[in-house]
Computed example of a mutant assay.
Amino acid sequence: MLTLDTSDTPLLRITVSGEVTREDVRLFYKQLDEALDIAGRAGLLVDLTGFGDIERNALLEDVVQEFGLLDDLAKMPRCAVVTGNRTIAGMIRYTAPLIPRMDMQAFAPEDAAAAEAWARDIPPPKANRKHLPGLTMLDSGSPDVLAFEVEGYIDDDHIERITAPFRARLEQGGRFNALARIKRFGGVDPEILFDKSLLGMKWDAVHALHRYAVVTDSGWVGPFVGIARMVSDVDVKIFPTAAEDAAWAWVREPIPQDAPSRKT
């Protein structure tokens, strides 16, 4: 069962107990959408201490509904989850940095009061990230190195700015290196995830890239780099901001004409 208590706004209390059904999920998200329209911005306090299980179709429904909320995450700047399940708490800590515009934290049942206080104390609205620079191409000083900087929110309007330099380099043929400087990732428009031109460019780039340096101090990048290493032949390395010079030196090294695949 999923229940939503809106009597204490700007704090919305969500209680998950017993087995959650697909109808529970549908009704909950309808109520949440209406509550956010009224409140504008609210902190979320999610009590999972009584959670038992969730039906398979209810889980799929929840995923679909969550994707629909991506554009509204700024309305829920803080989400405190109270749970005694260490697996759930670990998943929250692991995935929280990946969620744009929302700060999510897990609290043990004995810290429920602290969870409520934290969720209630929502920060003031930030500047609209859609108006901040999302992606800027950098002068690498080498025709075999494409470099760019990520800072702020990447809107679907930026698709052409993202794909054009890569497509131009791909048309030249041969392998090349890339460097990404990630300062502050403010999120991405969900429509980008399904943009055919970007997906096609990524597929082509995976086969042409030799080295990919990521310069950042953000910890959430690590898991994605690990996945990239497993599914592609690209040599990917993370460099802390203080070692950016080393990253540039690495991607500017000449690419062997017969650069072998890293996977055999």
Rank of each mutant, 00 (worst) to 15 (best):
V145T: 08
D189C: 14
A112W: 05
T241D: 08
R229M: 01
L170T: 14
D24P: 03
G222I: 00
R56L: 04
I92S: 06
L45W: 07
A246S: 14
K130T: 13
R181F: 01
I88S: 06
M102T: 14
A74L: 02
D37F: 11
P77V: 03
L170S: 07
P77F: 00
D245I: 02
P190V: 05
W250K: 06
R262D: 01
D72R: 15
R41A: 01
G90W: 02
V16N: 09
V16W: 04
R22F: 00
V82D: 10
V145S: 10
D5Q: 14
K75E: 01
F148T: 09
A113W: 00
V231R: 10
V46Q: 08
S142E: 04
P254G: 12
T9M: 11
V150R: 09
D245Y: 02
L199E: 11
A119H: 08
A164K: 12
I88G: 05
R161V: 03
D8W: 05
R169T: 05
A35V: 06
W248I: 09
E23Q: 15
G43A: 05
F194E: 10
P125M: 01
I159T: 07
K263P: 00
F239S: 09
A114K: 10
L132G: 11
L12I: 13
V20C: 02
L11D: 04
S140Q: 02
P100I: 00
G174L: 04
W248M: 06
I154D: 11
I99A: 10
G134E: 02
D62M: 09
L146A: 09
V221G: 03
T264A: 13
F194R: 12
P109N: 12
G173R: 05
A249C: 08
F166T: 13
L2T: 11
D235V: 11
L69M: 15
T15S: 13
I227W: 05
D204S: 15
M104E: 06
V64Q: 15
I182M: 13
M230C: 03
G226Y: 02
P97N: 08
F185W: 07
Y94T: 08
A112M: 12
I99F: 11
K126P: 01
D144W: 02
L179N: 09
V234P: 01
Y153H: 07
T9S: 11
I182K: 10
R161Y: 01
L11T: 07
P165F: 04
N85F: 03
P125T: 03
L45G: 09
M91H: 00
W220P: 02
G141Q: 03
G134M: 04
G222D: 09
V188G: 03
A164D: 07
D235C: 05
G187T: 07
E253Q: 10
A228L: 14
V46K: 10
G186R: 01
A39S: 14
L44P: 10
L27T: 15
L4N: 12
D195N: 15
D71K: 13
A112T: 13
